[in-house]
Amino acid sequence: MSLSLDDVQRIALLARIAIDPGEEQTVLDGLNRVMELIGEMQAVDTTGIEPMSHALDVTQRLREDVVSEVDQRARYQANAPAVENGLYLVPKVIE
């Protein structure tokens, strides 16, 4: 399966990555090489092998339900471009 320039534009939009029109062909070639690699892996016979959802063959460690964090808002917000009344301010978004 190979991708088209439309696919590149759509993927870029979904990922919020700006791609110059001049770069699109280079990105497309790069992505198509990745797709080829995936194609090669797909061709391997995996009958009878259970798929893994993680590269490590171990399971999730759990934590007890205990509140262990303290309020560090002032420190976190020292980094933020705009805050008011304890809120982070962002460009207006209404869907």
């Binding site: 982070y88 301010l89 460009p91």
Partner: peptide
């Protein structure tokens, strides 16, 4: 989305 000088508060 109340008015924070035209911005949204999070």
């Amino acid at each position: 989305h109340e008015d924070f000088h035209g911005m949204s508060g999070i």
